[in-house]
Design a protein around this nucleic acid. Structure first.
Lengths: 221, 221, 221, 221
DNA sequence: AATGAATGAGTTTTCATTCAT
DNA sequence: TATGAATGAAAACTCATTCAT
């Protein structure tokens, strides 16, 4: 049987299907990881969430671990450069903190499926996967903090601790943000930023249901 | 040699063994969960880390899940009352924040095996179960915050968000604290407390390797 | 420690308990075999139906099989001699058939727990255990038939087949009898006897609920 | 050589293997149930009697119970319609009884493996499951009897009891029939039919080893 | 490439029996 | 002798991976 056609540019049906199937698996895996947690997920679970057959999985990934790697990398690759870039531009503590949280919460809000995959809540299990890519993201933050300290933006605090505090607040507040519809990444970013810049006394007042008098809804400090 | 201590009901060897075996299993489970992560751990792994026979496991727990519950509850039951009690005494924001972090980090430092079990790495997965007991601990913190706001200790911030921020910083900073020997719960508590009271500019300066002069270790800003 | 008393006749507490425990186990076993069937019953099930501890079982019986033997023997020993004796006295077909069914249904009605043990209905499973003792009971019936044929009571039919028919009707009709309260062994015996003596046309008319005219409730033939 | 037969949908090798494997398991199960009894049989036993791997069993059946169901239903589905149809045609007691027994014994003789599976010995346990399909068969017989009574074929006997008697004789006589080679379903049917039509006195004389004169083989009474 | 049944190693779980108290 | 927890062999079941179609 001869290969009748060779089209240089337009992608053959074969290649398209291939890319599409890979994506089907990745999407299914994200879903299932988010629902069951990484540990409890089986390859069968992933396949079941797909129109494909079980054997097909192995045409694209060697194992559950490998799909997981792919998802992780996708996430980290999507957010890390953005964060790093923003922070590099910061010339004050305010800017550094603000852009870090804002970028993070915006990303999470846009791409909450991915977020849920690495930080997940379901069947009572929250998981966070400290895989190389994610850890690398943390390291990058720490390095950016070190640079900022060197530049004099930050006082000479323990960069590791500060990184931990930022990460902790970012993930935990993101979790809450996602529970309320509609998501309000701006409010989340404001909250976290205010906390880091001025402590609890600087926090924005809560949006109350009652029409509060004007000055109360804004910051008093 | 006389038995000087008074045991109201001298325990038979059988009861002792029973209690001891239960503990053997719990300890083994803690170890193994900490090493392999909850998801990857099998009941066999737990038993293997024990001098007991496979069937014996089922005399004490119905499943891996049940051991895990027991561990979790042990943790939550140990720490929650302490935290709640301390916070109830607080009459200022400072006290509220300080005692929360101090109690938490002291506990974690004392009982790091338990902490590692519920907040852990290896196989790159950190798990924390938002099971009834743990969630109840979070709720309690939120309620305490609400009470504090009502009393005027806190400005009228979003209690859910503040709780999230405290929890995030607590767990994440604890993680870092445990990576350095010797543990320094005081430093961790100081760090977190300062952050919450005055933001990044209020943070204590990092412990440098050089023996720093006294006033340097405290806040300057 | 000395054995202070030796009472020749009155049974010691020890012996009494021993006999009593043996009986507890036998009774429990009967119950459980009847409920779960022999195959599905575990020694644990039997013990659970007893106030005794699992180890105690083995002071009385070596295994499930052995309890089962004991029950079987009890049953066979209780009913076989009665049946044999009655049939030996029979001098007509009528007597032979009548006494066989009457004795059997009376026994079953009295001791339905034992019956249920060897012929049981629960969880949709009917079991009949053709153990040596039970088979011996069947053989005895066949031999009695052979003797009756030799004596001229029966025509020279196939004794094996006749035995099978008697056994089949006995067990199956007994099953129905036990489903109606109050049990009516007399009606069951009449039914079976009439069938064997005269075929379906000789069967007694069914007891109807409606107050039927007198002659209808009795046989018409 | 051409494939002369017309298969509407030529079956792929896959489908064939699937059907064949299902049958392998069913056959093995029949064998093993017949050898060990239902209760004592394990899924492993069934698989061992098969060239298949252990996991394969679970591609076809969820449990031992489910295989058993399949076998049972096969039996009931094969025999019930035949019995019902024959009885519907009966216009006399003789026909009703005759066709019932004849059809039953013919079936059992043809399909003795199936019969042995649901009515069986070894480990001394005979099992017959009164599962929906089988019970439905019994019910059907009872209903047919009720119809026959209404039509005046039978005297107004207790249909439940008559059904029980027929069932008891059918199963028990079938058991004996299967013990002798060659099977003689005709003799079994004659025996049972005669019993039900005229009682023991109407029974055919036993086949003796000696070539008996003609009239002896038929009824004398 | 896609399919999905087969595989069998590995896991969970049960239970008859033993044995220290 | 009674107890009941411990034992471990064996049963039930799962699932990642292979492979014939």
């Amino acid at each position: 049987m001869k290969n009748g056609s060779q089209r240089a540019m337009p992608m053959g049906k074969r290649e398209q299907t291939k890319i599409q199937n890979r994506q089907l698996i990745l999407d299914a895996a994200r879903q299932v990881f988010a629902e069951l947690g990484y540990g409890a997920t089986t390859v069968r679970d992933i396949i079941r969430a797909t129109p494909l057959a079980s054997g097909t999985f192995y045409n694209y990934f060697k194992s559950k671990e490998e799909v997981y790697q792919a998802i992780r990398d996708e996430v980290a690759l999507a957010i890390r450069p953005r964060l790093h870039e923003e922070r590099a531009k910061a010339s004050t503590v305010e800017q550094f903190i603000t852009c870090t949280f804002r970028t993070f919460f915006d990303y999470v809000s846009d791409d909450r499926i991915n977020f849920r995959t690495i930080r997940h809540a379901a069947d009572n299990t929250r998981v966070r996967m400290d895989t190389p890519e994610v850890v690398a993201g943390f390291e990058e933050l720490r390095e950016d903090i070190e640079v900022a300290i060197a530049k004099g933006l930050f006082p000479p605090v323990d960069p590791d601790m500060l990184m931990a505090a930022i990460v902790g607040v970012a993930f935990e507040v993101a979790e809450r943000m996602l529970r309320k519809e509609p998501h309000d990444p701006t409010a989340a970013a404001d909250f976290a930023t205010s906390l880091f810049l001025g402590g609890v006394r600087a926090l924005p007042y809560a949006q109350t249901e009652l029409p509060a008098s004007e000055e109360v809804t804004s910051n008093a400090a």
